[in-house]
């Protein structure tokens, strides 16, 4: 059995930050990189399936699209127990959109022909929530999005999953492998990778590929892109708290108003 886990090294914006002069992005000095939180859950789900499976020869492969910064995230996955890692990078992937990334991942995942592909529901920086299902679209794999419960029967190659719907409703459904699932946070308790384990993970196989290695054309990224970013701007300023003054009754009335306005819809 083989499980492929695509992960992403995400950027968190510092409280105070500056944009690049040309407005195309954030000054990297103000970004903190980390493995996407959702991906720690999909990773854990993969490791648990492997640990619960009978017999040997099961493999968890972690894949990412990213520059060298992203290796830190791969190392933590390897430290937790992934068997090998693949990092795909090409200059043309700089700023690539969700469909382009999915396209590149599809080329890599196809070569692995896994039984399961486990993605995070979304990344915390871009929050598209679409990479996994787009990847399934390219690969024509059965897919279930936003999975908060997963029971994989390796013998039957069938996953019984819980799909988390709005308002706490849960749909239970069954899907046959090979399949792609996008995993929601809270589905498990991701394990901790000690610093020692991360250091030792450097001994594990970590392959770096470019587009050509995957049999993709040079302009594959541009071809696949679903959008182009024109500008990145801070939202309308709201420096500090707007103070609500007046009597407690007035304050209460404003609070009700604000809450209703924000919660409507």
């Amino acid at each position: 059995m083989k499980i492929v886990v695509p992960v992403k090294q995400v950027a968190a914006l510092d409280e105070e930050f500056e944009l690049l002069d040309d407005g195309s992005g954030v000054d990297p000095d103000f970004l903190e990189w980390d493995l996407n939180e959702w991906d720690t859950f999909s990773m854990e789900a993969a490791l648990q399936i492997r640990e619960n499976a009978d017999g040997d020869g099961h493999e968890v492969v972690v894949v990412t699209v990213g520059d060298e910064e992203a290796e830190e995230g791969l190392l933590s996955c390897l430290a937790k127990g992934a068997d090998r890692a693949l990092r795909i990078w090409d200059e043309s992937l700089q700023g690539a959109d969700v469909l382009a990334v999915a396209k590149v991942l599809a080329a890599a995942v196809e070569r692995e022909s896994p039984d399961l592909v486990l993605c995070g529901v979304q990344s915390s920086d871009a929050v598209y929530g679409a990479t996994g299902v787009a990847l399934a679209g390219y690969l024509d794999l059965p897919h279930v999005a936003v999975v908060k419960g997963l029971d994989y029967d390796a013998a039957q190659a069938t996953a019984t999953v819980e799909r988390e719907l709005e308002g706490g409703l849960v749909e239970v459904l069954r899907v046959e492998a090979p399949a792609l699932l996008t995993i929601q946070t809270g589905i498990n308790e991701p394990r901790y990778a000690t610093l020692r384990a991360i250091k030792q993970a450097r001994e594990k196989p970590l392959q770096v590929s470019d587009l050509a290695d995957l049999g993709l054309e040079e302009d594959a990224v541009g071809q696949a892109a679903g959008s182009r970013a024109v500008a990145l701007k801070p939202p309308e300023p709201g420096e500090g708290a707007e103070m609500l003054n007046g009597s407690p009754a007035a304050v209460a009335a404003r609070i009700v108003e604000i809450v209703q306005e924000r919660m409507s819809g």
Binding site: A102, A130, Y138, A224
Partner: peptide, 19 residues
């Protein structure tokens, strides 16, 4: 929508953005 729209976007090479 997140369960199917991205797959269609990918397969049909649509312009695409979420949220």
């Amino acid at each position: 929508s997140l369960g199917f729209a991205p797959a269609t976007a990918a397969r049909r090479a649509l312009g695409f953005a979420t949220d």
